[in-house]
């Protein structure tokens, strides 16, 4: 069992940071709603509030890690231009997708959308985390502020979902590969 360095970075970007962020989003939406609308006696304890602040900060780190590794580590490999005359395009995912009418949409729609929409996730969740850390449970007394924060949190989830879906599909049709091979385990011959 082995994986290439580029494959490993793509895995960290998509499955490590991106998918974990998406998983965290659903929990954050529920907790944001609960923390900012609940009334006594179901009110959260200070310990729970502190935990949720750390949870949101972890989401901020995950979101920024996902877009930065995507844009500055994986994307250059994706958009690399092949030397003139190259016919084997497996190492050039963008050109591989563009070489067929059945896959070009994954670049012209999927990647063109993903590469920009993904950035709304870290911008939005950074704002959400800042507002929650600053206001805490006092947010329940700011109805319109709370509604706006929840809307941005939903937008962050949607943006990350679009990016995740497009990324998964692009990697299915034209995986980023190459670089050194890392041997994960030695399989036994049948």
């Amino acid at each position: 069992m082995e994986i290439t360095v580029r494959g490993l970075w793509t895995l960290m970007h998509g499955m490590g940071f991106g998918a974990l962020y998406l998983l965290a989003c659903s929990g954050a939406l529920v907790e944001l709603h609960r923390f900012t609308t609940s009334s006594p006696p179901s009110e959260a304890t200070p310990g729970q509030e502190r935990f949720f602040k750390v949870y949101l900060l972890a989401m901020v780190v995950l979101a920024w890690a996902a877009v930065l590794t995507g844009a500055y580590v994986v994307y250059p490999w994706y958009r690399a231009a092949p030397p003139p005359g190259t016919t084997a395009l497996a190492m050039f995912p963008q050109r591989l997708l563009m070489s067929s009418s059945t896959t070009i949409g994954w670049h012209s729609l999927g990647m063109e959308w993903k590469e920009h929409v993904a950035w709304f996730a870290p911008i939005s969740i950074t704002m959400v985390a800042f507002v929650f850390i600053r206001y805490g449970r006092d947010l329940k007394n700011h109805r319109q502020l709370r509604a706006a924060v929840l809307s941005f949190a939903v937008a962050s989830f949607v943006a990350a979902g679009i990016a995740g879906f497009c990324g998964a599909m692009i990697n299915k049709y034209a995986p980023v590969q190459g670089g050194h091979t890392i041997q994960l385990s030695q399989g036994e011959e049948k």
Partner: peptide, 21 residues
């Protein structure tokens, strides 16, 4: 139910996020 904090800081963060996006 009275807010302990003014809403200016939250409004600043929200509007800036909209502008940045």
């Amino acid at each position: 139910n009275a807010p302990a904090l003014t809403n200016g800081s939250g409004a600043a963060a929200i509007l800036a996020a909209g502008i940045g996006s």
